[in-house]
Design a protein around this nucleic acid. Structure first.
Lengths: 140, 140
DNA sequence: TTCAAAATCACACTTTCGGCTGATGCGGCC
DNA sequence: GGCCGCATCAGCCGAAAGTGTGATTTTGAA
């Protein structure tokens, strides 16, 4: 987390430098201030969206009408929050790479999580894991 | 969704107006342009975070009730008996090799069947195929 | 603050999947 | 007889998936 925050700081500093540069370019060309401001606004709005997604990725929202998650079973098997997220996406038919992209982590990380899941769910393949999870009331 | 987008548009327009006003206030007070730009950047970054959160909120999906095989759908998609058998075993989490053994045919045969299934079910992976089949009422 | 669990990632490997091409045999059907 | 759909199989290739080991960073709770 600290790492990412520092990263953002650096990124913002770099952007500031770029903006500084662009600023003079724009002014010598007599482009309007409004346009410049608009560009900045749009740019930073985009950055905000991105950063927001990145920073709040931990939240899991699963809502299915008649489904009630079996917390006990989850704990009994020692399945962590992150692992559960992976399990869900797996159940949606996503590939490991897609899951990695969606959760903003590396492919290897997903592989580790899924391996752990297979162990805990006593499965050898993702299809089995998903089936087992449904039987245990871990998935709708 | 459309409503929210329009809402954002209006909000942005209002903000622009406000900025326009603040702009002159700032300039007559001789505050630096850099400061002004920074404020805009921060503000819009914030807006971006907020908007991003709102727009990517997840939706609730309705789960399927009890199972009654959908023959019509099977025929519509042109799924043969053998293919359906493979699909069933696939849904049980078996590997292609295991399916081949169970049906007393070669691995390659299963591969062709599954490939055809993926085509007919518009899926790329077995997990997707199974999911899709369940949605269509082809599997419990 | 300390410590264990959780999360992250790497890298080297093996296995499994899935796409593609092409082939053969069988049973209906016009 | 010729055409078609189905089922069967082969072989190749690249991409995913899964295994095993080891390491670092974050986090949460005591």
């Amino acid at each position: 987390m600290r790492k990412t925050i520092i990263l953002y700081g650096v990124a913002l500093a770099a952007l500031t430098a770029i903006l500084k540069f662009i600023e003079y370019r724009f002014f010598v060309r007599d482009l309007s201030l409004e346009f410049y401001l608009g560009a900045v606004a749009v740019l930073f709005a985009g950055i905000g969206v991105w950063a927001g997604q990145r920073l709040t990725r931990r939240k899991v929202v699963i809502a299915t009408p008649d489904f009630k998650l079996n917390d006990g079973e989850l704990q009994r098997l020692g399945i962590s929050k992150r692992e559960y997220e992976v399990l869900e996406l797996m159940a949606h038919g996503l590939s490991n790479q897609e899951i990695a992209d969606k959760l903003f982590v590396s492919l290897n990380t997903i592989k580790t999580h899924s391996s752990n899941l297979f162990m805990k769910l006593d499965a050898r393949r993702r299809t089995q894991a998903v089936r087992r999870a449904k039987e245990l009331g871990l998935l709708p």
